[in-house]
Structures are given as structure tokens and as C-alpha cells.
Amino acid sequence: MDIRVQEAPFHLGAETDGFARKQSGMGAVVTFTGIVRDLGESRLDVMEIEHYPGMTQKALEDIAEEASNRWATGDILIIHRYGRLRPDEMIMMVATSARHRSDAFQAAEFLMDFLKSRAPFWKKEITDDGAEWVAARDADEDALTRW
């Protein structure tokens, strides 16, 4: 398990390649990448991501641990950034490996669902209209019940 909380950008290609090459006997690697997008009515300038330094690493480790207990995963990588990000920058990525793709896909989806509402990150959008905290969506909380 490799869990990183960092301000610096990461290189998706290099991380994915490095992760895949480390695996042994795994037939599947799945990755997901979250990107800052501008979907609001006003133009997004910066996405500020705050986190709870003392808690974040442990919370992500717990989520990854839970995923590896539920599915036959080989390995899990989570990278999540904080700080000031611009539109189209990569916020985070997860990678999972498994002998068969179903475990890798499901573990990745589980990680994403729990990361959204159980890892202590908060997003604030700075647009040309001002600054606003992104509200959690009921759908994100509801998504946890399917697991």
C-alpha cells in the first residue's frame, strides 16, 4: 500500500507505469484520476484544497485497508493533493491491482466513494464571482450505502 498526501503535482503516466511494473502475478491494473474542472456558471480560477494533516494519512490508509479486505487486491496506490490547484490540474489518483479485473475495478470504485466523503479534504472554488466552499452532495453520501 502506498498512500501519499502532497502539495506537489504528480506524473500520472510515471505513477501508473511504476505501479504496474511493481506488481507480480496481477492480471489487472485499474486507475482513476480526478481533475479540477470548471462546471459552474462562473469561471473557475483556483480550486483550494484544505485537509486535516493529522488525520488524512490515517483515514486514507483505513479506506485502502478496508478495500483490500473486501476484494482480492494485490496493491493499492492513492495520491491526493492539497493546496491551490488550477483548472485541468490533476487532484488525485488511485490505482489498484488484482489477479482479475473485477476486483481491481470494484476496489477502485469503493476507494473513490469513500475518499469523497470519509477523507478529511475540503474544496473551495475561487471564481470570478468570489470564493465558495464546495458543498457535499447527498448523492456522495448515498453512494456509500451500496457497499
Binding site: 487532484i91 470519509r118 479534504f121 458543498a135
Partner: peptide, 26 residues
């Protein structure tokens, strides 16, 4: 103490309490 909890949770022995809005990671 850096674990999600409830408002009726006891504080005996706790060293740190944090309050925040629902999280928006990912």
C-alpha cells in the same frame, strides 16, 4: 483524536477534537 465520531461521544482521555463540514475529497 483524528477519528470520525459523533456529537454524543465521550471526551474522557481525548486530546484533540476537530469540527468541520462534510468532507469533499476525491
Amino acid at each position: 483524536d483524528q477519528e470520525l465520531s459523533d456529537f454524543d461521544a465521550p471526551l474522557a482521555g481525548a486530546r484533540e477534537v476537530a469540527f468541520f463540514p462534510p468532507m469533499t475529497g476525491g
